[in-house]
Design a protein around this nucleic acid. Structure first.
Length: 103
DNA sequence: CCGTTGACTCTTT
DNA sequence: AAAAGAGCCAACG
């Protein structure tokens, strides 16, 4: 981030995501919305490539329906990290009313 | 420039 | 409730 080109869509995702504190999550849609875009999928792609982990906590991004979503190193890992941060996952789902970060 | 590719989402079966 | 279809959009070759 420090010495890159003009902020691409991806960069903006990362900057936004950095604001999500431990114990909270956000969704692909929420990020796209915050960027005034409908590029839900592009957000996922950005996370998949995230070069700034763990500074940018891409594991705190889940699906809009509370399911976990994917993870470059395996969804299993993602779940464990989230649990370790205090997020409860019931039947593979997160209660967004409780854990969703508000931008 | 055009076609493909997804860590997606919404609607309709 | 679960699956299938359609829509979306940035990145890459």
């Amino acid at each position: 981030m420090g010495g890159k080109d003009n902020p691409s869509f991806n960069e903006r995702c990362y900057i936004l995501l950095k604001k999500v504190q431990k114990g909270k999550v956000t969704t692909y849609k929420a990020i796209a919305d915050a960027l005034n875009s409908k590029a839900y999928r592009a957000v996922g792609n950005a996370m998949n490539k995230n070069p700034y982990a763990p500074l940018v906590p891409c594991h705190r991004v889940v699906k809009n329906n509370g399911e976990i979503g994917g993870f470059a190193s395996g969804t299993r890992k993602k779940i464990e990290m989230l649990k370790k941060e205090g997020i409860k996952i019931t039947k593979g789902k997160i209660d967004l009313n409780k854990f969703l970060h508000k931008f």
